[in-house]
């Protein structure tokens, strides 16, 4: 009997598998972060890696994001290819200096002498009732900064292929996951594959409206599209997958065909990725738009704790459906 070509795997398993496959091939890659080794990862996304690679390459740190991020960047100036894990990107604010001022600037300021092949990865955004400081999405902050690449998959298949590309990339990559995706399952090819950074995906084809989203809230986007499909409304759902560089062409092509667009994003509304896309679409496809672009972001407030408030705070399927129907002039 031949071995299976696909295997059901969770998001956390493919993260560990992508890192492990790359580490087997390239001894300069190491994984560093809080609880990545003996604990097997705060979310078990590095399970088994200490046992396979040893403590020289799977490295537990004290709670010192600033220190170990800078050590990661410095080691990348001297032959290493580090993977730096944050327990969540909410904690990356204490080391953002090292990401923005050192990782993203080194190549340019050194006149091209040093590129920084490093991956900063971990979960982003909210994950239930965690309070305001543990529920933030900084994708647009990082994507604003030249010198970085920002990748944010929405399912295990994409996560594996994109993480392998991020590790092989010669530039610094911010790779964002979600606590609420780690348990997601999918059939994963057992043969090695990678997916290109900088390319969006059409996750569902449709002719009536283009819905653009990324990351874990893609689930809400897909649910809304499936529901509308039952009503005979065919939504084209685009999963951006990479935010920097952003694949504008896939969006523009879709909008030119569908003439209506809604953007769904788990982030505050001001100067968000949705704002950026709206600008480019009105510039490049103004004459193709039959209605104003609508964007669905988080309310312009920090995440609340109370269960009823956090439920109202996070965009839901009903809200997306209503926004789409308004854009299509089905409801007022």
């Amino acid at each position: 009997m031949s071995s299976p070509v696909v295997k059901e795997m969770t998001f956390r398993e493919v993260i560990a598998e992508a890192m492990s496959e790359e580490m087997r091939k390239d001894p300069s890659i190491y994984l560093m972060g809080e609880e990545v080794a003996e604990y097997n990862g705060a979310y078990k996304a590095s399970k088994g890696m200490l046992a396979e690679f040893g403590d020289k390459r799977v490295i537990d740190t004290p709670i010192s994001e600033l220190g170990f991020s800078g050590i990661g960047v410095g080691s990348a100036m001297n032959g290493c290819r580090p993977i730096i894990e944050y327990m969540t990107f909410n904690f990356s604010l204490v080391c953002i200096d090292q990401i923005i001022n050192n990782a993203a600037k080194m190549r340019q300021m050194s006149g091209g002498q040093w590129n920084i092949p490093i991956v900063f990865r971990g979960p982003t955004g909210s994950a239930g009732q965690l309070g305001a400081t543990h529920s933030q999405a900084f994708e647009n902050w990082y994507a604003n900064c030249p010198g970085l690449k920002v990748v944010i998959p929405s399912n295990p298949y994409d996560a594996k292929g994109l993480l392998k590309s991020a590790i092989r990339d010669e530039d610094p990559v911010i790779f964002m996951e979600s606590e609420q995706m780690y348990g997601d399952k999918m059939m994963i090819p057992q043969e090695e594959y990678t997916l290109p950074i900088g390319r969006a995906d059409i996750k569902k084809k449709g002719k009536d409206l283009t819905l653009v989203s990324f990351g874990k809230i893609m689930k809400v986007a897909m649910d809304a599209a499936e529901n509308l499909s039952k009503e005979g409304i065919e939504i084209e759902v685009i999963d951006l997958k990479t935010l920097r560089p952003l694949d504008y062409d896939t969006i523009i092509d879709s909008v030119k065909k569908n003439n209506h667009m809604v953007i769904l994003e788990e982030a505050w509304p001001f100067a968000s990725i949705a704002s950026e896309i709206s600008h480019v679409v009105q510039q490049r496809a103004f004459d193709y738009l039959d209605a104003p672009i609508r964007k669905i972001n988080l309310p312009d407030v920090p995440a609340p704790y109370a269960p009823n408030l956090i439920e109202a705070w996070y965009p839901n399927v009903k809200q997306v459906i209503n926004t789409i129907k308004k854009t299509l002039d089905i409801i007022k």
Partner: peptide, 12 residues
């Protein structure tokens, strides 16, 4: 900002 970088160069 260069202090952890120096330790990182030494780390490598």
């Amino acid at each position: 900002g260069q202090i952890p970088l120096g330790a990182g160069v030494a780390f490598a």
